[in-house]
Design a binder for these strands. Structure first.
Length: 459
RNA sequence: UCCCCAGUAGCUCAGUUGGCAGAGCAAUUGGCUGUUAACCAAUGGGUCCGCGGUUCAAGUCCGUGCUGGGGAGCCA
């Protein structure tokens, strides 16, 4: 008999008769005459209830089943006379695949996120984390679906990079030399290393993506990204997934239009395809989630220039811990005020002073600002960071010299501005940040399977 | 990296002025004919985060380290 997954069974209108399910025992309520078991196979949030009568062979073994044990159950799918579920299975055969001993750490009660992080290998077996990682999977699919529908090409850029100045924070060094050899060298000699020069894990696929946007038109990358920053916050991990669209013939406004469309598309997909899992987050994780999702879907995102934002903050009358100063980066409290109190919805902040932004951002006509954009989301902070890129070779080279960047290392990047350069734009969206937004989960470590953070690389 | 808070049973936590180590849940055993985080009864369960100090006496006070959480910076 062929196994049926529980998500398929639970939506049936009428019973097909006998069915075979396989899964893990979530809870068992036993008595002398019969036992109820709830089985989950990961296909959906819901369990299916099994009724096991004492007449079954090995009933004493069935009665001894524990939470976490794995079983295979064949029986008749019948309408449940009890409350709380439509269907249940009246078991004919229960095969015990493996009994989980009493040391199984997951109990039939709520556990703290902190505890579950210490057993990250088992936490996907809980309702909350099962829902989280089903949703994560569905959102990754929706990313590809969105870009397929829009005619973008999927680009996989290198994870190991030789550019030492990608410009976004500390990098992890990649080497094949063993520490003893390096010690004997006295001073690190990269020419003896695998690639013959210093190499690192990528902090962004953007520069590569720009090259392909100049060829394929619209591209996106979606893959792991690494930052060696010693960041200890609920919004940072050392290894995360980033989505980076890059679009030829696109200016900053087109960039924002695209970002807004993307966020709304993914959100709508979650609402339409993940309703059951989403209901868990709405009910048990974040009571304000429903309203926030409604705002995401139905409001037009605000768009404010950095200069206007500074004015708004200065006139707000708010007592900020840090002063608002034109020419410096906005503090968290300032960004939060703009998104959560002033706009009460996602807001694109644009046109930052050029001295606080990287070399590749396009210099505006005022000569003071660049065509940068950040999307700030209430409760999350920065979800998207991007820009229109500097496509004018002379302006780009001047800027790089100003910032003391070694032009020769970027010869290939500059070639794109030499040969058929066009206006183009793109941004990076933190995939985990998006998941936090759509689930209401407050710690980024809880939306990634095995989080990597400073001092922590278990599992 | 900086600031603040916490660390006691498998989990969540209480522990008064420094004076015998506690509860709920879980586990184990038994009972129970339709349960829904089932219910009822009994039983077992401790390096009070580590190290050092003060004291007749430290879970409690002091120092230090580690781990975790919240916030800041960096950013996605």
């Amino acid at each position: 008999m062929k196994r049926t997954k529980i998500n398929v069974l639970l939506v049936l209108d009428q019973s097909p008769g006998d069915v075979l399910v396989k899964g893990w025992v979530r809870t068992k309520r036993g008595s002398k005459e019969f036992s109820f078991m709830e089985i989950n196979d990961g296909s959906c949030l819901s369990n299916i209830q099994i009724l096991a009568d004492k007449d079954l062979t090995h009933y004493s073994d069935i009665e001894a089943l524990t939470t976490g044990s794995s079983v295979s159950v064949m029986g008749t799918l019948v309408e449940s006379p009890g409350k709380g579920q439509k269907w249940e299975i009246k078991a004919k055969e229960v095969e015990i695949i493996n009994v989980a001993p009493e040391s199984y750490p997951l109990q039939k009660k709520r556990h703290s996120d902190e505890f579950l992080r210490t057993i990250a290998h088992l936490r996907p077996r809980t309702n909350k984390f099962g829902a989280t990682f089903r949703l994560r999977s569905e959102m990754a699919y929706a990313v590809h679906k969105f870009y397929k529908e829009k005619g973008f090409r999927y680009l996989t850029t290198p994870l190991i990079t030789g550019s030492d100045c990608e410009g976004a924070g500390e990098m992890f060094r990649v080497t094949s030399l063993d520490p003893e050899t390096v010690k004997k060298m006295g001073k690190m000699d990269f020419s003896l290393d695998f690639f013959g020069r210093e190499s690192n894990l990528t902090v962004s696929g953007q520069l590569s993506a720009e090259m392909f946007a100049m060829a394929l038109g619209d591209v996106y990358t979606f893959g792991p990204t690494f930052r060696a920053e010693n960041s200890n916050t609920s919004r940072h991990v050392a290894e995360f997934w980033m989505l980076e669209p890059e679009m030829a013939f696109c200016d900053l406004n087109g960039n924002m239009d695209h970002g807004e469309e993307l966020v709304k598309y993914l959100t709508r997909h979650a609402v339409e395809e993940c309703a059951e899992d989403l209901s868990l987050f709405k009910n048990f994780v974040d009571k304000t989630l429903e309203g926030r999702i409604d705002i995401l879907l139905n409001s037009e995102f605000a768009r404010i220039t950095y200069t206007d934002a500074v004015d708004i903050l200065k006139k707000s009358g708010q007592a900020f811990e840090f002063p608002v100063e034109y020419g410096t980066d906005l503090q968290s409290e300032h960004e939060r005020f703009l998104a959560e109190i002033y706009c009460k919805k996602p807001v694109f902040l644009t046109d930052y002073p050029k001295q606080i932004k990287p070399f590749y951002m396009r210099v505006n006509d005022d000569g003071k600002t660049v065509a940068a954009v950040d999307l700030l989301v209430p409760g999350i902070g920065e979800l998207i960071g991007g820009s229109q890129r500097e496509e004018r070779l002379d302006v780009l080279e001047a800027r790089m010299k100003q910032m003391n960047l070694p032009l020769e290392n970027y010869w290939w990047y500059l070639d794109s501005r030499k040969y058929g350069s066009v206006p183009h734009s793109g941004f990076g969206m933190g995939f985990e940040r998006f998941l936090m937004m759509i689930t209401g989960i407050g710690n980024i470590r809880d939306v990634i399977p095995f989080p990597r953070t400073p001092g922590s690389i278990d599992f």
